[in-house]
Amino acid sequence: MPAELEVNWENLYLLCNATALAINDVAKLPFIEPGIQIDEYDREHGDELMPDPLKTAHQCSSAFLLGAGDFIYSVGKLFSLESPMLTSPAVLARSAVEYASRSWWLNVADLPELRISRMSALFNQSYQEMTSSLGAVPDGIEVGKQFNTWRSRQPHLPKAKVPKIANLVAKMLPDNGADAYEDLSRVAHGNLVQLLGTVYSANIGAPFHAQNAQGYGLFAAQVGLVAGLEVCEMKGADRTPLENCVQMHAALSQSYLMAEAGTGTGTGTGTGTGWSIP
């Protein structure tokens, strides 16, 4: 991989596509808990309400990572259009970051009990968010009650609270995570100042409008790769496909930063100063 690679729509599409495929493969790896047989652990700690708590925690992590890969792939597809989309990639990138950060949070737990507790916290948060509509979900209320009953029977599990996504991303990427995620959120929530700046820059053909969109794709791929690498680290799996994407990402990031410096109009969205493989 060259030290520098031109940051253009085609290369960004290739990065997003390769990253999504690599993440998809990692998410489908067999479940492994370091030093523990998952089936044996679940036979000992599961019950009729939750027969396989540790396996379920791994399933949740994989589901989040699969979702992140889908969003990253979709960002790439928007870049591959004859006239690339420049605003909607931010919303897809934000969702990719939210999914990937939750997967990462589950995987960095250093004990199976903590992994289960974090999975439990995510389930509880999800049920609370759906309270008003659970009646429309078949058996949704009963499932929620069963889950809460199961959790109350697990006094040995450590407490866990779902962090804010911004805080999670800041831990994943201390240099640029918080600022980049905030920028995505402004786009997703229709911040008027952000919107007017985007429309104005597009109307006058300002280059930083396109640069921001490119930064969205770079950031989504970066967070997805960090989450995928954490899975490989925990499972001792082959990191090569992800490392190849990291090298491509680093080269495109360098080109992106040079383009920002050349125009002097960058808004800070994107990938900071580059990064190395964790």
Score class of each variant (00 low, 15 high):
M1L: 07
P2A: 02
A3K: 04
N11W: 03
L12S: 01
L12R: 01
T19I: 13
D25L: 14
F31I: 13
E33I: 04
I38V: 12
D42N: 06
R43Y: 09
R43H: 11
H45V: 09
D47P: 00
M50P: 03
M50R: 13
P51I: 10
D52W: 11
P53L: 07
H58L: 10
S61M: 13
G67Q: 13
F79Y: 05
E82V: 12
S83M: 08
M85P: 00
P89M: 05
S95D: 10
S95E: 12
W104T: 01
W105A: 01
V108T: 11
A109L: 04
E113V: 08
I116A: 03
S117E: 06
R118W: 03
S126A: 11
Q128L: 11
S132E: 14
S132R: 15
G140F: 13
I141K: 14
Q146G: 10
Q146N: 14
T149C: 06
W150V: 06
R151P: 05
P155Y: 11
L157R: 12
P158N: 12
K164D: 07
K164C: 02
L168R: 04
M172K: 01
D175Y: 03
A178W: 04
A180L: 02
A180S: 15
E182H: 12
E182Q: 15
L184T: 05
R186L: 11
G217Q: 01
L225V: 14
V226Y: 07
E233K: 15
V246Q: 10
S255H: 02
S255E: 01
G266K: 06
I277R: 06
